[in-house]
């Protein structure tokens, strides 16, 4: 469900929240931000999709962090348990919690943004802010091409299976199968893009000069002030963190 906010406002909100959380580097704040994003996602009606996408990203990362820092953390001093070379240390577990929750908060916030923003609005808003129009074209057409491509791959697989392709067996036969699906897919897409380029060129796509947009996105002044305030806040957080950590981070 697209949100009613101006896309730049929600983008700024998500980006600044992620930056401030990273700068703060405190796990209670990270957990709170992640939870707040989850609640907002559920209220926006995209809770299931956001949580599924976040789980797909965060579960492997979390497991990997837990295994890595939970068992092997040579800098750790407080040893809780030890088996041979593996030592469970309090510092390692704290470090895993710290990095995991920080990444988790950023992922949740950014997913909340990407699942609630309307892609055409975002592209129109960005082009209105002086970004090259090509950027909007590439991003928007990639986002619309993604579902088309999946359907096309299904068609190719069905066609190849009708001709006797069997997707089973060892790595080698699977690789042959992948090649039989990949080559027609890539060939077809590159052919298509050639004709699309000619059509676009004929309509003045590559021409210089300013562009106008069909799509006008309302940008109320409240949102603009809110964005400015958030950017200032994020800049302050980054400056504080850099100033606080600079001497400690020097070579030693």
């Amino acid at each position: 469900m697209p949100s009613t906010l101006h896309p730049l406002t929600s983008l700024t909100a998500a980006g600044c929240t992620a930056v401030i959380t990273t700068a703060a580097g405190a796990w209670p704040l990270s957990l709170a931000v992640g939870l707040a994003a989850a609640v907002l996602a559920v209220r926006a009606g995209v809770g299931r999709r956001v949580l599924a996408a976040a789980a797909a990203v965060l579960l492997p990362l979390g497991l990997s962090l837990l295994m890595l820092h939970g068992l092997f953390f040579p800098e750790g001093r407080t040893v809780l348990a030890a088996w041979g070379p593996a030592r469970v240390t309090a510092e390692g577990l704290a470090f895993a919690l710290e990095s995991g929750s920080r990444t988790g908060a950023c992922v949740m916030v950014l997913l909340l943004f990407s699942f609630t923003v309307s892609a055409p609005d975002l592209v129109a808003a960005l082009a209105g802010r002086g970004l090259p129009p090509q950027f909007g074209f590439v991003v928007a057409s990639a986002l619309t091409l993604l579902p088309v491509m999946a359907g096309r791959l299904d068609n190719i697989r069905a066609a190849q299976e009708a001709r006797g392709l069997v997707l089973r067996g060892g790595v080698l036969s699977r690789l042959v199968g992948v090649r039989l699906q990949m080559v027609p897919l890539v060939l077809g897409l590159i052919e298509d893009s050639g004709s699309r380029a000619q059509a676009l060129e004929a309509r003045g796509f590559g021409g210089p000069g300013p562009r106008t947009s069909y799509r006008e996105v309302a940008d109320p002044p409240v949102g603009r002030r809110f964005r400015a305030a958030l950017l200032l806040l994020a800049a302050a957080a980054v400056a504080l963190r850099l100033a606080a950590s600079w001497p400690a981070a020097g070579p030693s």
Binding site: Q134, A142, M149, V186, D192, G194, E201
Partner: peptide, 13 residues
């Protein structure tokens, strides 16, 4: 333009 049109294809690939 011929390259630009190919870029979304590459992203999806």
């Amino acid at each position: 333009t011929s390259t630009l049109v190919l870029m979304p294809v590459a992203l999806v690939l």
